[in-house]
Design a protein around this nucleic acid. Structure first.
Lengths: 243, 243
DNA sequence: TCAAAAGTGTTTGTTATACACCCATGT
DNA sequence: ACATGGGTGTATAACAAACACTTTTGA
């Protein structure tokens, strides 16, 4: 990621002026989740100029005239992180009358789940521009962005239990313990290892890579990958994912 | 409901002109679900004037400058049905570039669940204006409204299994069979009566009214009401509603 | 007395939970 | 050898599914 991209992403969000060729009164904000170690993080940017200097915000921007909503969210995320085909879903539109200063702006929010190995930036690297922050313990955010984050975390916690979307936060190949820690991190709970393993293995959603972890100071775990095709098959047969 | 209200609701949706004092390029559309007999219905309006004459559409309209999104959705629903405090949740924003003719309009959709006893209009009553139509078998709809409906049904099917929202489709006092038929109607499945009863009774979410059905040609069933307070208690203790 | 729905009981197989245990590997 | 996590086994209790059955009521 170049700093030019970061400042482009930032300047798009400075209140006024809105760039030419974009929709009026309508913005996009992205909630970008990542898992670092066993902590759920969210990517924030620090406004470097303008009235909101030094304050933290969700990365966002404006929608172009000839661009679908999802395309806009996807472009903004790509400009910020370089990631091209993320898991990206619409969260909600936020449109309180006074949520944005001086003019009425409705924002449509998306949430993205990205894997640490696609975008391995750790907290502190580019602290003045963009930074991974613990999703459960962020600094104050501009506008209604805290409300958006709270809503997003709740949706994530609900979704992750009912749809197999958690895999998007892991590298392509992962161990069962990584998967368990993912659920523990998002749901803030402890799980029983043997039971967690069995539950997932019985679902037939994990394909063994016939490969083992490397460079660990203990017995190396088997690596698995999420079997998207089999998931499609199973759901057609009425299978319902529940953790 | 007066027909003045209906035509107000309709004229708000005629493509152009957009009334003064509303947000540009941003509309609201409501997906209003009701349960009639044991069939899931959706409330549609037929455009009576303009280019789209005779075509069916979701009821919707424009957002006022000094009105929150939810308020707008709520006002539009009230103007159409007279219902004031419905179950109303945001569905999704739809914003494909060419979804609306001639100009770019993003629509924010809400879905409402209303009970037949609050708004007992049955199919056919005001056929030229507004009509309840089987949710799974509607006529062609304008713009992307079919896509919105399909998305809404999917969300409803998912939500109803994971959150106790189905009660909003029933009268305040209902029998266990009505509750079962609700699930059968929304999910398009058959359920086993004894098992369904036990499952629900064990959740402690139903308070007996100590009252019986009246005017039925068979043994009268006990009436229950959804215990919202106890639901709050239970969820705080980690209870998770699943059907 | 019959139809229609209310409501109960029981059997069987499956799943969840808790927790004890052994295995493999790098330091 | 020991710490660390990988991975298996098992007893118990809870639950789901299937379905046979009795009860109540109005027509």
């Amino acid at each position: 990621m170049t700093s030019a991209l970061i400042s482009a992403a930032k300047s798009n969000r400075e209140p006024f002026p809105v760039p030419e060729g974009t929709l009026q009164g309508l913005s996009i904000d992205n909630l970008i989740f990542g898992l670092h170690g066993s902590e759920l993080k969210v990517l924030l940017i620090k406004h470097g100029e303008g009235i909101r200097e030094g304050e933290w915000a969700l990365p966002g921007g404006w929608i172009k005239q000839n661009e679908d909503l999802r395309e806009a969210a996807s472009r903004l995320l790509r400009d910020l992180t370089g990631i091209s085909h993320p898991y990206l879903e619409q969260l909600k539109a936020f449109g309180k009358v006074d949520r944005y200063p001086a003019e009425r702006v409705v924002t449509i929010t998306y949430y993205a789940l990205i894997s640490a190995d696609q975008y391995p930036l750790v907290a502190g690297f580019s602290a003045s521009d963009a930074s991974w922050v613990s999703a459960f313990d962020t600094p104050a955010l501009v506008f209604d962005h805290k409300e958006i984050l709270t809503y997003g975390i709740q949706l994530l916690q609900h979704q992750v239990r009912h749809k197999p979307i958690g895999f998007n936060l892991l590298p392509e190949k992962f161990t069962l313990l990584q998967l368990q820690e993912l659920y523990e991190a998002i749901l803030n709970i402890k799980l029983d290892k043997p039971n967690f393993r069995r539950k997932f293995m019985k679902m037939n959603l994990l394909t063994p890579c016939n490969e083992k972890q490397k460079g660990v100071a203990h017995r190396a775990a088997n690596l698995y990958r999420f079997d998207k095709d089999n998931y499609s098959n199973l759901t057609e047969q009425g299978f319902s994912f529940e953790v």
